[in-house]
Design a protein around this nucleic acid. Structure first.
Lengths: 234, 234
DNA sequence: CGGTAGGTTGAAAGGGGTCAAGTTGTGTGG
DNA sequence: CCACACAACTTGACCCCTTTCAACCTACCG
């Protein structure tokens, strides 16, 4: 989620489905129905670090919402090359589209997720405007994340790819100038389209350039303005 | 659009909004309202090749649907590097999300589009399930396109990037083993994350490898199975 | 018929990949 | 509490691919 939306049933604060002309709400019980579904039919599930949450298999129907922890969506190419399509953080939906359900979902850290039936969710959202709006928003957030990822992969130098990645991670998990790095270097590498070795060298170079102040395995301290200008330079 | 949906008002063939429990339709007039909106409030517009359709500016509200021709969504990095985020073909929506509205939309070929107010579209879809479903579908198609783009950019060799691009283009515009190339080499290059020279060389290499039979400026004849296996090899 | 934009091809250089060796650090068992 | 083992990370050396810069070709349009 772009701006850290919580997990309350109604994060956007929208009222019930109404007609444009300001008429009466359309079947209030739909909301109850959907809320009941969201609360009751969702299986809560935990996974420990590096455990597979859902494998990619034809006709996968489950989708998830991350409650706690970090997960990665992985694709393995026929030649064995690995790609981390995206990381998902608390509040994020995973598997809302068929193409995303073809990816393997794995826990980066110890994780708890809510589990839904994707098609049923969609069917219910056809009748529940509140849920439909929430899902549409999640869908848009997913688009935006993908757009950011494409922007990142468009940059040709390793430094800039890492800089953009750290910037987005700062937006997701950053606390002041500290950014946790829950995922391994190899995960970062497969996300930004480099090798783990190059990522490591890029970290070192960013430190040399005073963009990163401290580098720990799971935490960096960064100069956000320097990072931003680096991401924008040649 | 993934599988070439036309421009009819109701491409998905969905019936009117109904409750899950099979109740009566919910305000049929909503559909009429939205259809009227789609038909009447859309400004039709034409643009000749390389003309800008919408510049990226803060708070851009317009979104489009391509009627005829091909458009590209371009981002220019602060350092001048160019990226073609995606190409849009007849039937595709453009600018449904805020992040996409930050891109510059340009005509690749002579083009005609339908123009909407994005926020208004969204507001109306809040009250019109039919429109909401159609937009949700377009949103999902957009996600899928982005996912494909990310997959493409994840491949490291120029050959494979071009192979994947040609494969997706074949899906959009291909006729048998012929694939039109409406866009310039530089556009392809900025889409797949290479330089125009490398793209040109990759074309030549694909021909040497018998994956492409003929290469013209605006048309290639390809061996789809060879292309597919190339995209999957090391 | 010449100009120009787009495309191809060539040579040289730089950046990232690969492979291999070292380092750190974390968890486990003695 | 220490020592060992293993995984993750870092660093180094070398090579290949892509970029860069340049010249050249080709089609289209004035």
């Amino acid at each position: 989620m772009s701006e850290g939306a919580g997990l309350q049933p109604d994060t956007c604060g929208c009222g019930p489905w109404t007609t444009l002309s300001g008429g009466s709400p359309c079947r209030i019980e739909d909301d109850h129905q959907a809320n009941a579904f969201l609360a009751n039919e969702a299986g809560q599930r935990t996974a420990s670090a590096n455990e597979m949450i859902s494998g990619h298999r034809e006709g996968e129907r489950r989708c998830f919402r991350v409650l706690d922890g970090v997960v990665r969506l992985v694709r393995i190419f026929p030649d064995g090359q690995r790609q981390v399509a995206r990381f998902a953080f608390p509040g994020d939906f995973v598997g809302l589209t068929a193409s995303e359900r073809e990816l393997t979902c794995e826990a980066v850290t110890d994780t708890t997720v809510l589990e839904y039936d994707a098609e049923r969710l969609e069917r219910i959202s056809d009748c529940n405007p509140h849920l439909a709006r929430q899902l549409a928003r999640a869908l848009r957030d997913g688009v935006d994340q993908n757009v950011e990822h494409v922007r990142l992969l468009g940059r040709r130098s390793a430094r800039q790819r890492l800089a953009l990645f750290l910037k987005s991670l700062h937006g997701e998990l950053g606390l002041g100038d500290l950014v946790p790095l829950p995922m391994a270097r190899a995960d970062i590498a497969d996300h930004v389209g480099l090798t783990a070795e190059t990522v490591s060298r890029a970290f070192a170079e960013l430190k040399r350039r005073r963009v990163l102040m401290e580098i720990d395995r799971n935490l960096v301290r960064l100069d956000l303005s320097a990072l931003t200008s680096l991401a924008d330079e040649t």
